[in-house]
């Protein structure tokens, strides 16, 4: 058998899941869709003593629009969100981003919240969450708390989640009226993790860029919110000159990108800027 031995629990409520996590601490691991965890187990890179499968907890698979947000429960499969009726109108950014997440065969099983909690910096969902200003609802032994996606990611595969805490919902604010959006990335094959990518949203008001959000991914330890690029874009006249300048600022903001056989650090830095410029152009055209 490929995975190491572990115990398995399928709690029937969030409280029960949290109690199990609280009792076992770092020795327990949450299993949702398993598309990252199971690979780690098969390679024995992770050796938890207990898996807490939250798939049997009722109510965690709901997708709902309320309070100006799209709420995605902890067990919502990426594919279920992709097929959520009206997503192309209610949250086109998420739809565009989800299509880049692995392959349909993985999205059928993988969850949105699982990808956020796993926090791979080359994954699309953490970047989408930061760009959209998502709020993450977290339940632990002391009750519920909420945290912005921007504060949630600490470094590679590490978030502010405590061992006894469960990410129960991700709340993605709907884009403001008239927003444009774009997700651009370079991968070896469609569906692979990004070598470098960018997510951009913006509005155009009085022929000027308004409310720009620029996030690069695959180029550091966490999704990179590029405030310098956002500041340069805000109030700028839409056009190639603005995109080029802001894209260069994205490259500059990339500090210590991965350097490996797939792409060198300098290539990743450069590609991140180009992806950001292209994303700005596309977002502006849609705004």
């Amino acid at each position: 058998m490929k995975p190491p031995a572990f115990e398995y629990a399928a709690p029937a409520s969030v409280a029960e899941a949290v109690a199990l996590l609280d009792e076992r601490g770092f020795d327990a691991k949450v299993l949702a869709g398993g598309q990252s965890l199971m690979a780690l187990l098969n390679m024995r890179l992770a050796r938890p003593e207990l898996l807490v499968d939250i798939a049997r907890v009722p109510g965690l698979d709901s997708i709902e629009i309320s309070g100006g947000c799209l709420g995605v429960g902890a067990m919502v499969r990426q594919r279920s969100l992709e097929f959520f009726p009206g997503l192309a109108d209610s949250h086109p950014l998420l739809l565009a981003g989800l299509r880049h997440v692995a392959h349909p065969q993985n999205r059928n099983q993988g969850t949105v919240c699982g990808s956020l909690a796993h926090a791979d910096p080359a994954a699309e969902l953490p970047a989408l969450a930061v760009a959209a200003g998502a709020e993450l609802v977290i339940e632990g032994p002391d009750g519920k708390r909420s945290e912005s996606a921007e504060d949630f990611f600490i470094t590679y595969l590490t978030t502010t989640l405590e061992p006894a805490e469960l990410l129960v919902e991700a709340r993605f604010p709907l884009l403001p009226e008239g927003s444009g959006w774009s997700v651009q990335e370079v991968t070896r094959r469609h569906g692979d993790f990004a070598l470098a990518g960018a997510v951009v949203t913006m509005r155009i008001a009085d022929a000027r860029v308004a409310d720009p959000h620029v996030v690069a991914f695959g180029v550091g330890a966490v999704p990179l919110r590029c405030t310098a690029a956002e500041q340069a874009l805000a109030g700028a006249e839409p056009g190639p000159a603005a995109w080029k300048e802001a894209g260069a600022l994205v490259s500059e903001a990339v500090e210590d990108p991965l350097d490996d056989v797939h792409a060198s650090a300098s290539q990743r830095r450069s590609v991140a800027g180009v992806m950001a410029s292209r994303a700005m152009e596309e977002a502006a055209a849609r705004a």
Binding site: Y8, G34, Q105, N108
Partner: peptide, 22 residues
Amino acid sequence: HGVCGACTVLLDGRAVRSCIML
């Protein structure tokens, strides 16, 4: 580890990787 797809089966009609599923 969920990449090659040789183990793909249908779960309630949806294609999934049976190697990275318990």
